[in-house]
């Protein structure tokens, strides 16, 4: 039990630190793409920039608009933060660590329902944005909230269907089972490239990241759902976004890129394997975080109706076809028709 608590603590801290430094990294990546330098004056190479931002937001006047619904106004960022942190519980971070007193499992909880848990929690995550946007009592916030929620609900479907193919291939919902099934280089991306594309696009939409950042696009809605938020409450929203980015990257790596598996993992064993596995997973996670940022700084964003069209008329049919084809292939290979 103790080791679980420690693990929870470590994962919590890592998520927060990574979220913090993701903001820094995002600014740096943007700068590199744009032939700039990026933050470089707060500490060496600007490394203290996230801390400075944190302190600033913490010391800022805690402001609640006069006509807003105070209770819900405070609850919004809280829910956003809570849900995005909750998903990290079922991520398998690496192979077991072997100690004298038994194996330590690098996973907080291995639910039977695994990936469904993530989908469930993500579907609840919409409340943070929705409530926050509504409670701010500002039309732009409301627009942002409505856009965000309808977008997230719509893309959940395609996301779920694309995941089902993986579940069908593995025969389990548990993320650990899915990871184990991809042992070595037997990664799902080689079998399910279409599902990967759909899942990746949908997670961008779920995260409200470009090119699906309609809920907060500043050229149209100023700040979208967080227009009226300042100080640490805004910080929570931004944090939730980056934590979400971290977790999504982790889920993508696990579902399609073998999680903590890496080529040539059979040559090592024991704790070396565990450490290398964790490193492999994090390398993948960072790569996907980078890709998400890369996309943001390259692409223009969709319009709202086009986004809905893409979700309902392109991605869901594609995901369904993919599901059908996968099912048929599995049926043939496992000899159901004989």
């Amino acid at each position: 039990m103790l080791e679980k608590l420690i693990l929870v603590g470590i994962i919590f801290t890592i998520s927060l630190v990574i979220a913090m430094y993701a903001t820094y990294f995002e600014r740096k990546v943007a700068a590199w793409f744009q032939d700039r330098i990026g933050p470089d004056r707060a500490g060496p190479f600007g490394l203290l920039q996230p801390l400075a931002d944190g302190v600033k937001m913490f010391l800022k006047e805690d402001f609640i608009p006069r006509n807003s619904d105070k209770w819900l106004f405070i609850m919004g960022p809280g829910i956003a933060m809570f849900t995005s942190l909750m998903t990290s519980t079922i991520i398998p971070w690496g192979p077991d660590i072997v100690t004298a007193s038994g194996n330590i499992v690098l996973q907080v909880a291995d639910f039977d329902i695994g990936i469904l848990f993530i989908l469930g929690v993500v579907s609840v995550g919409v409340y943070g944005i929705m409530i926050g946007g509504w409670a701010s009592n500002n039309k732009f916030s409301l627009f942002g909230a409505i856009r965000a929620s309808s977008q997230m609900i719509s893309y959940e479907l395609a996301m779920g269907i694309s995941v089902i193919t993986i579940v069908m291939m593995t025969g389990s919902l548990s993320l650990r089972d899915i990871t184990e099934a991809q042992h070595g280089m037997n990664w799902n991306i080689f079998y399910q490239p279409l599902a990967f594309v759909i899942f990746f696009v949908c997670s961008l939409a779920e995260l409200n990241r470009a090119p699906f950042d309609l809920a907060e696009c500043e050229s149209e809605l100023i700040g979208g759902y967080h227009t009226e938020y300042g100080s640490m409450k805004l910080g929570f929203f931004l944090f939730a976004e980056y934590v979400g980015m971290f977790i999504s990257s982790a889920v993508i790596s696990i579902l399609f890129f073998g999680g903590y598996n890496f080529p040539g993992m059979d040559m090592v064993e024991g704790n070396t394997l565990a450490v290398l596995g964790v490193v492999a997973l994090f390398v993948k996670i960072f790569f996907f975080i980078f890709v998400i940022m890369w996309i943001r700084w390259t692409l223009p964003r969709f319009r709202f109706d086009q986004l809905m069209h893409l979700g309902w008329k392109t991605l869901i049919p594609l995901a369904l076809i993919n599901l059908l084809v996968t099912g048929l292939v599995i049926a043939f290979t496992s000899g159901w028709f004989n």
Partner: peptide, 11 residues
């Protein structure tokens, strides 16, 4: 920029 593609602007 208004469509969301900031990078072209900086180029």
């Amino acid at each position: 920029v208004d469509t969301g593609a900031l990078t072209g602007f900086t180029y």
